[in-house]
Design a protein around this nucleic acid. Structure first.
Lengths: 140, 140
DNA sequence: AAAAATCAGTTAGCATGTTAATTATCTTAT
DNA sequence: ATAAGATAATTAACATGCTAACTGATTTTT
């Protein structure tokens, strides 16, 4: 038995770094940070969301999200409004420009994904995604 | 066919968040950040390392590592010295206090790992680690 | 050997991670 | 109806992520 087993969390981090290397160049080209792209992608799929939910889905803490959204609002990628029913809540959605940003990038990101899948293996990729989702079910 | 497949990188991030939730409380108790613990753990296993190598293993960029090590040096967890052969290189190792820090934490971290493994499944955990390591081989 | 290129680490500047405290709003208990 | 409690978001303060530029030391080129 090994004295030190390998760290799951470090391996998840290192593996993610490798995966990100397939996508980072494209993000750099359009001047979006990883976090901003996550927000664009999620809002594109889910439509208008409140900040709590968006932060949870994007793995961005709420205090960080405040700044991320402020900069994206300046860049006119998203717009915020307060909910009528509950004045505490803030709802966020993509602007038309934000939608176009996603559309113009999605093809290229798909190509990057294909490159990764080709080198890694489609079945292995599917298995990995299943295992990751099962790990996520341990939340709370 | 789904219009939007799920994002591998986001799933890796979300899964890591769940995994970290098993360890964060322990880190908080001793006042170490995630990054500092990674440095302690790696130096404990590998002994003295140069900064480039340490940064690569710990998934911490060199500019960040400068600050991390400065704070850990102030806390007297690590010590730095320049290599005799190559004055550009800086070598880092744990102090005696740093070693004790690791020793006093490793048991508890191991318990956390057991809890995770018990809930997730030992075989699944092994499979996941294998798949992650295979993904890491795509580096470069 | 001297200049140019390379390399290790740091510094600088801004974006984000993280926790605690704060503000404004809403809900619940009395 | 009002005060206490809970909730959503922000602010503040410091640590880290990230890129580019910079410094000093080593290697390569000419």
């Amino acid at each position: 038995m090994p004295k030190h087993r390998q760290s799951l969390t470090l391996n998840l981090l290192q593996a993610r770094e490798v995966a990100m290397s397939f996508f980072r160049p494209s993000l750099k080209d359009i001047g979006l940070t990883e976090q901003q792209w996550r927000v664009v992608r999620i809002l594109s799929q889910q439509g208008e969301l409140e900040i709590n939910r968006l932060a949870d889905l994007a793995c961005i803490l709420k205090p960080s999200m405040t700044g991320v959204l402020a900069r994206m609002e300046t860049a006119e990628l998203v717009e915020r409004r307060r909910s009528e029913h509950d004045q505490r809540r803030v709802l966020v959605k993509l602007t038309a420009a934000g939608e176009r940003c996603f559309e113009s990038m999605s093809g290229r990101m798909e190509e990057n994904y294909e490159r990764l899948q080709e080198r890694y293996g489609a079945e292995k990729l599917q298995t990995l995604l299943v295992l990751l989702n099962e790990l996520k079910t341990l939340k709370r």
